[in-house]
């Protein structure tokens, strides 16, 4: 169905009512100006040349039985032959890079944090800020960056 240009009859009462709602929303519930600005500034993110690591597992996508109450959020990212397993519980982030190796991890978000994994590819960060979050991993000359997520 081609609906890209919805037929709009100016004397149609429903269209007029929808337009009135649009007008009201623009006044009562507009996009907050500071948010619009963060989206404009996000353009800089598109220049990052790192390989994008894809989210291949998210415990929030699983059924309630698997998730369970109080369980950590578990995420797996894949990119450039590297697997990154993350567990997040109330601001505490625990990660494991596979294959195990030393790497530099940069957490991008409202606060930027850089940490180094141990020789087995493990790392912990105690105070991850809430909000949009992406993780960049530099290992053996390769850089992968995860998709942005809300945590």
């Amino acid at each position: 169905m081609n609906d890209e240009h919805r037929a709009r009859d100016p004397v149609n009462d429903e269209d007029a009512l929808e337009d009135m709602l649009r007008h009201a929303a623009g006044i009562i519930d507009p996009v907050p100006a500071h948010l619009l600005q963060t989206a404009v500034e996000a353009y800089a993110l598109n220049t990052l040349d790192a390989e994008l690591a894809e989210l291949t597992f998210d415990s929030l996508d699983q059924s309630a039985a698997v998730r369970g109450a109080g369980q950590p959020r578990m995420l797996t990212f894949l990119g450039h032959g590297l697997t990154l397993d993350l567990e997040i519980t109330a601001g505490r982030l625990v990660g494991q890079l596979i294959p195990p190796q030393t790497a530099e991890i940069e957490i991008l978000g409202s606060r930027q944090i850089t940490i180094t994994t141990d020789t087995l590819g493990r790392f912990t960060c105690e105070h991850v800020a809430t909000g949009p979050f992406s993780l960049s991993c530099k290992a053996d000359g390769v850089v992968i960056t995860t998709e942005w997520l809300t945590v």
Partner: peptide
Amino acid sequence: WSVVRAHGLTEADGQEVYQTTWFRFAQ
């Protein structure tokens, strides 16, 4: 913003989803 509002998120959660969406789009 309308999608976020339609899902009835709190103000703080809604702002985070809005940002995550645009950050990911840029990415």
